[in-house]
């Protein structure tokens, strides 16, 4: 394989990995840990060689650095600078530069450089795995964050071919109250459901906040109008998979709210 082909392959792989990382981040943001888990496993399987190379390169870099630091009895600077008074950050900079040059002398070959450019991506995936596995976040904060982020964003979860799930996050901040009402009306007409409306009749002039819940195809759609500028659509996919029928709900919502994809 020529160098050019190799670089094209590298660019393609990186783009695809970055896209997948972004999708997993949206899933985590939408608190769908199951979907994120599946996607991450797929990503790790698909690019296992690619990712291992990156982590190994990083590991060899650390080993070399540790070795050099262990053998460094004191922070020695080049002779000319030895007796000069330097600021702390200048001293640190020079020592780091010196160490770096020694590391590179040891590892200086093309395959290392080639692998090393992948290693930050490999590490990011490793961190995502750690984040998914971690249980350190308290339940209280998770609940608070969940409520807050769901009321500001609309996460669409669309099932594509090959069991691939596409996640999209939309900002809902700029849409006026009337659009929240339009969604309720359209869903009522299309699916013949009666919304459960909290506090007030939404056909009246506002007092706010206004909340309507609709149960469609086994999912609960909650529409909350907070004030004249903020309204939220939450879709709880409790036990159902979004199929073609449910896509209709999504289409109605996206037709009425011109979404700003994030």
């Amino acid at each position: 394989m020529s160098q050019e082909d190799h670089n094209i392959d590298y660019q393609k792989n990186i783009q695809s990995i970055l896209k997948n990382i972004h999708r997993i981040k949206v899933m985590l943001w939408a608190f769908d840990y199951d979907a994120a888990q599946i996607e991450l496993m797929k990503l790790e399987d698909e690019y296992s060689d690619f990712l291992t190379i990156g982590l190994l390169a990083e590991e060899s870099f650390f080993e070399a650095r540790k070795d050099i630091k262990d053998n460094q009895f004191e922070e020695k600077l080049p002779d000319k600078l030895e007796n000069r008074e330097l600021k702390k950050y200048q001293r640190e900079y020079l020592i780091e530069l010196q160490n770096n040059q020694q590391i590179i002398k040891r590892l200086n070959n093309d395959s290392f450089k080639d692998s090393f450019r992948i290693s930050p991506i490999s590490r990011t995936i490793k961190q995502l795995r750690m984040k998914l596995n971690s249980t350190s976040t308290s339940y209280f904060y998770m609940q608070k964050i969940r409520e807050d982020s769901l009321s500001k964003y609309f996460f669409s979860r669309i099932l594509l071919a090959d069991d691939h799930i596409e996640y999209r996050a939309y900002s809902l901040n700029r849409h006026p109250t009337r659009e929240g009402r339009k969604i309720i009306e359209r869903l009522e007409q299309e699916f013949g459901v009666i919304p459960a409306i909290k506090k007030v009749d939404y056909y009246d002039e506002l007092p706010l906040p206004l909340q309507a819940k609709l149960f469609i195809l086994g999912a609960m759609i909650k529409i909350t109008v907070h004030d004249y500028e903020h309204f939220a659509v939450e879709i709880m996919f409790s036990n159902i998979d979004p199929d073609e029928k449910f896509k209709k709900v999504y289409d109605i919502i996206t037709e009425l709210i011109p979404p700003q994809k994030i």
Binding site: H22, K131, I145, S149, K152, I262
Partner: peptide
């Protein structure tokens, strides 16, 4: 830039690992 955009970019591009500040 709207505050909401900052929030969403913080979520997706700058990985806020401190959960408490998220909301």
């Amino acid at each position: 830039i709207s505050d909401l955009k900052i929030n969403s970019f913080g979520e997706l591009y700058a990985d806020k690992w401190i959960e408490d500040i998220k909301s």
